[in-house]
Nucleic acid binder design. Structure first.
Lengths: 194, 194
DNA sequence: TCAATTTTGTATCGCTCGGTATGGAATGAA
DNA sequence: TTCATTCCATACCGAGCGATACAAAATTGA
């Protein structure tokens, strides 16, 4: 799969470097993560970053894509559960686990990355919002396939679940521990048709 | 109440200027709001801002304090309701209204202001988190006074309600409309003891 | 062995950031 | 009128930002 390269070979693993960039963006947000922070965490120099990823915004988009693929695999796994209640229960608990992993920053990259539009016209915030709403739509579509009581809107239920998930992410970023998030989920599940 | 001043009188209303600063922080976040953005919205020059408020961080803290006093008065009003269910119902609906006021930025300053620790070591994010948790504690204390079923932890219930509120704030900032937030609240209230 | 190609390290670019020095303008007190 | 005091406006500061120019280093193909 490695195509024959002509020039000097790259001295670092682009995916491993991306993993380190993910954590920097996760902790400091898009705007708060400076190129000095990023490249020093990635173990490379600035020109290497620009050659490999384009610019800071592209690096961020690649980081979010990789984050969605790896750190949010639990969400796709939860969709495989056989009932609506179990899908939601598994999604929320696995989400709470991910929000409080001891070896990772607290919270969720797609929220920590940036909610407010900073210097740009909210381009980053909008990109993250779109990506979150895509997850919400995927959940709604899965719920629509499953056994919901008549009159229950799958899209509204999915939005409720994502709302709890995002609120938990805000709490986790503030230092709230895993057990407390579980307690919140216990309440949240009481609103879900069994 | 105006004490006799000696020198040249101030040429602007400090509270009105603060209201304009609130909106800039609300839209762009603490880091994303530059002094040029702020002072031009406030209609004053930089030295006037520094003379009146100290520095950018102090301006932000004053803005958040004024925001809590004015734009979040609905929260204190909701606490006056006579039952736990009504307190929570009124808090969440008034919150959804505030998150989607057409004459104000979408979402909530205490979340839009900044979740991730930027250049500083998360001092702003921590300040905002502390202020949000103070609101949560106030709600918990009020719920503890009211009629909850035996075995219901007021602190956990308050945390659940704030989680929904914060999730709605994230959704509102992403452009979700008021009716959708209401639908989320309809689900959320099903978990609240009546 | 040499040209072609790509990456790497250094040093720097122009720009914007938060913050300030300075002098003139506007007031109250004497 | 004059002084002391306070505020306003211009112009500027050092620092850090994202992004790059340039040449040395490392590889492939001829």
């Amino acid at each position: 799969m490695t195509l024959k390269t002509k020039g000097r070979p790259r001295g670092f693993d682009a995916d491993a470097a991306l993993d380190r960039a993910i954590e920097v963006f996760w902790e400091h947000g898009y705007e708060g993560a400076s190129l000095t922070d990023l490249t020093s965490a990635m173990g490379i120099n600035r020109p290497s970053m620009y050659a490999a990823y384009g610019n800071k915004e592209e690096l961020f988009r690649r980081a979010v894509a990789r984050y969605a693929e790896h750190d949010m695999a639990y969400a796709r796994a939860a969709l495989a559960e056989p009932t609506a209640y179990k899908v939601i229960e598994k999604f929320l608990t696995a989400n709470a686990d991910a929000l409080t992993r001891p070896d990772r920053p607290a919270g969720c990259l797609s929220i920590q990355g940036g909610l407010a539009g900073g210097s740009d016209d909210g381009e980053i915030a909008q990109f993250l919002a779109t990506s979150r709403l895509a997850g919400e739509r995927a959940l709604a579509e899965r719920l629509a396939e499953l056994d919901l009581p008549a009159g229950t809107d799958p899209a509204a239920l999915a939005r409720y679940v994502m709302t709890v998930s995002e609120g938990n992410a805000v709490h986790a970023a503030a230092g709230v521990d895993r057990a407390s998030l579980y307690a919140t989920i216990d309440f949240a599940l009481r609103a879900v048709p069994a």
